[in-house]
Design a protein around this nucleic acid. Structure first.
Lengths: 121, 121, 121, 121
DNA sequence: GTGGTCTAGACCACA
DNA sequence: GTGGTCTAGACCACT
C-alpha cells in the first residue's frame, strides 16, 4: 500500500501523484488510468476519494472518462499541467521563496549547494 | 483595516504577520502587543480569532500574557521563530522547491536571474 | 453525563481525563478518540470546548487528527505525557509539597501513614 | 524589587508572601504591616493590587485596619492560617499528591530522599 | 481597561 | 458522518 504524507487532503495527494506520472512521461496521452477500485485498494482509501480525484482531474481536462471502459489521459494533459504549474511557480512560488530566503538569511550559495547535491542523486 | 489574502486561515495569517514584526526587529523582546480587542478591530475579525492567534503564539513561547495587562514579546522570541523557520525551510521548502524545478524544467539560471532582480530592488 | 469539579477550566479537566486514559493504558497508540460531538454530549459542554481540548493535545503531540475521520492517540503519547508530568512533579510539585509540610509542621511520619493507608486500598 | 512567579494572580502571591511572614513568626500579632504605597513600590505593582490583597486578608480576619494608622496582624492570625492550610493540606493536597505519585510511578523512597535533602539545607 | 473561558450556532472541507 | 474555522456575545478574574 502506498504511503501518504500528512497535512494535504488525501484526494489532492493522489491527484498530484497522478500528475507526477504524466509530467514524467510515464503515462502519456491515451494511457488508461488504474480503475477506481484498484487505486482505492492501493492507497487504502475509500473508493469515493478516488472517484473525487478523477472527477477533479476530469474537470481540469487532464483526463477523460469513457463510459464502461475507464479513465484515460487526455491529449493535452502534460502541456496543461506544465503550463498551469510553471505559471504558478514563476508568479508565486519563486518570489515567495526568495522573500523567505532573505528574511531567514539563507544565502544563494547555500541554495545552489543544495541544488547541485540534489542533481547528483 | 488590514487586508488579508485567502487560502490560509485568518488566525494563521495574523500569526505570521506578528512573527514578521518580530523577525524584522520592529517588535523586540518586552514589546507589548496590541490588545485582543484592538487587533480584532484593526483586522476586522472577531476577538476570539485574535485570542486564538495569541494563545497559539503563547504555547510556542513566542509571546506571553500578563493578566489584566496584556501580551508581550518573549525574550527568546526572535531566535525561536528563526530557528523553527530555518529548519523547516531547509528540510522541507528547499527540497520541495528543487524537486518542482526539476519536474517543471525550470533551470538554475532562471532562478538566479529572479534572485538577482529581487535583490536590486 | 460525566461530572466535573470546579476550579480548573473545563477544557483542562477534559484534557487531563483523556491523559489519564492514556496513562492507564486504556487508550493505547492508534486508539480512536470519541468524536468532538460525541464527547461534547457526554460532558454536557459545547463542541467548541472539546475542539479546544483536542487542539491543544494535538499541539502537544499527544494525539493527531485525520480530517473527516477522527482523532487518534499518537505513538509516543504515553511516554510524552509521563515524561512531562514526571519532570513537573519532581521540579515543582515535590519541592512545593515539602516546603508546605515544613511550613505547616506536618511530619514525615504523618505523610508516610497517609501513603501506606492509600496503598492498602 | 521583589520577584514574582507567573501563573498565580499577583494579589494572591502577595497574600501568600504576607502569610509566610506570619506563619514563620516574623510578623506576630499586633505587628504593623507595610503601608500600601510602600508595598506597591516594593513589588512594582499598582497600589490597587495591594489594597485588594489587604482587603482580602481583612475579610479572612488575618489582619485588621486602624483608620489613619495602618494595617495590623490580628491576634488569631497565625492560628487561623495554620488551621485553614493544614485542613486543606490533609484533605486535598496529600491525597492528590499520593495519587500522582502512584500514577507516575514515583516511589516513596524517592520522596523521602527529596525530603531529607531539603531538611539538610 | 486587560486577558481567559465558554456557549450557540454557522459554514466549509473531507471521507 | 468526521474535523476546522469563524462570528457573536456573554461572564469572569485581574490591574
Amino acid at each position: 500500500m502506498k504511503q501518504m504524507s500528512d497535512n494535504k487532503p488525501v484526494f489532492i495527494q493522489i491527484k498530484e501523484w497522478i500528475e507526477q506520472h504524466i509530467l514524467r512521461g510515464e503515462w502519456s496521452k491515451g494511457h488508461q488510468l488504474p480503475s477506481v477500485r484498484e487505486l482505492s485498494a492501493e492507497f487504502g482509501v475509500n473508493p469515493n476519494t478516488i472517484a473525487r480525484t478523477y472527477e477533479r482531474l476530469t474537470m481540469e481536462q487532464t483526463i477523460h472518462s469513457v463510459r464502461g471502459v475507464g479513465y484515460f489521459v487526455s491529449d493535452q494533459a502534460k502541456e496543461l499541467i506544465e503550463t498551469r504549474r510553471r505559471e504558478e511557480f514563476r508568479k508565486e512560488t519563486i518570489p515567495q521563496f526568495i522573500a523567505d530566503m532573505n528574511l531567514l538569511g539563507i544565502e544563494l550559495e547555500e541554495f545552489i549547494k543544495h541544488y547541485n547535491e540534489t542533481e547528483k542523486q
